[in-house]
C-alpha cells in the first residue's frame, strides 16, 4: 500500500514539474527573451535587401576567391545538422585532410611551401559552424582578396584590422574575425553585390 501511495505521489509530482518546468518555464523564458532581445533570441539573423543571408553566429561556406574563407567544416556548414568528424590526434586520416587543406590554402593564396599556416584555417571546428577565424587566417587571405577584387592591399588589410575583435580587457576571449560580417563589409566597400 505504501508503495502505491508513493507511486501516486511520484506521478503527481512529475505532472506538476512537467507543467512548471516543461511548459511554464520555457514559455515564460521565451516570452522574456522575445520581449527584450528578440533579434538575438531568434538567432541573430542578418537581413540584406529583404532576404535572410544567414546568422551572424553561424558560419557559412565561402568558395569564391573574392571572399574570405571560413574554417574547414565537417558538416559543410549544414546548420540543420551540426557535427564534427571527431578525428583523433593520431589518425592518419586527420593528417591526410590537413595536408590537402594546407596545399589548397597555399595554392589559393600563392604562398610558399615553407610558410606555416594558421591552425584554425586548416583544422576543422568542433561545431562545423564556427563563424570566426583568427586574424592571422584573415591576413593570410588579404592579398588574394585584394587581387581578385582590384582593391588596394592596404584597404583590405585595414578592413580586417577594423573587423578584428580583441579579447575583452586583453584577457577574456580570443582575437577573432567574423567571416560573414567581414565579407559583407568587403562587399560594401567594393560597391559590388553579387546578388
Amino acid at each position: 500500500m505504501k508503495v502505491l501511495k508513493q507511486l501516486r505521489t511520484a506521478f503527481l509530482i512529475l505532472v506538476v514539474f512537467s507543467i512548471l518546468l516543461g511548459v511554464v518555464y520555457p514559455l515564460v523564458m521565451t516570452g522574456i527573451a522575445q520581449l527584450f532581445f528578440s533579434h538575438r533570441a531568434d538567432g541573430s539573423m542578418i537581413v540584406s535587401n529583404g532576404r535572410i543571408i544567414g546568422s551572424k553566429l553561424i558560419g557559412q561556406q565561402f568558395l569564391l576567391p573574392t571572399y574570405f574563407h571560413s574554417r574547414p567544416s565537417d558538416c559543410d556548414y549544414n546548420a540543420a545538422s551540426s557535427s564534427s568528424s571527431n578525428l583523433g590526434p593520431s589518425n592518419p586520416e586527420l593528417f591526410k585532410q590537413v595536408r590537402e587543406q594546407i596545399n589548397q590554402v597555399r595554392t589559393e593564396n600563392e604562398i610558399a611551401d615553407t610558410v606555416l599556416v594558421p591552425a584554425d584555417l586548416v583544422l576543422a571546428s568542433g561545431s562545423g559552424l564556427d563563424p570566426e577565424i583568427s586574424p592571422q587566417s584573415a591576413f593570410l587571405q588579404v592579398s588574394r582578396i585584394a587581387k581578385s577584387r582590384n582593391l588596394p592591399i592596404e584597404l583590405v588589410r585595414q578592413l580586417v584590422i577594423n573587423k578584428t575583435q580583441q579579447p575583452f580587457i586583453g584577457v577574456f576571449g580570443q582575437p577573432r574575425v567574423n567571416v560573414l560580417t567581414l565579407n559583407l563589409a568587403l562587399d560594401s566597400i567594393s560597391g559590388q553585390n553579387r546578388h
Partner: peptide, 11 residues
C-alpha cells in the same frame, strides 16, 4: 537563409 554566395542554408 540564402548565403552570401547564394547557397541555401537551413539554420
Amino acid at each position: 537563409a540564402q548565403t552570401l554566395e547564394g547557397k541555401q542554408q537551413t539554420i
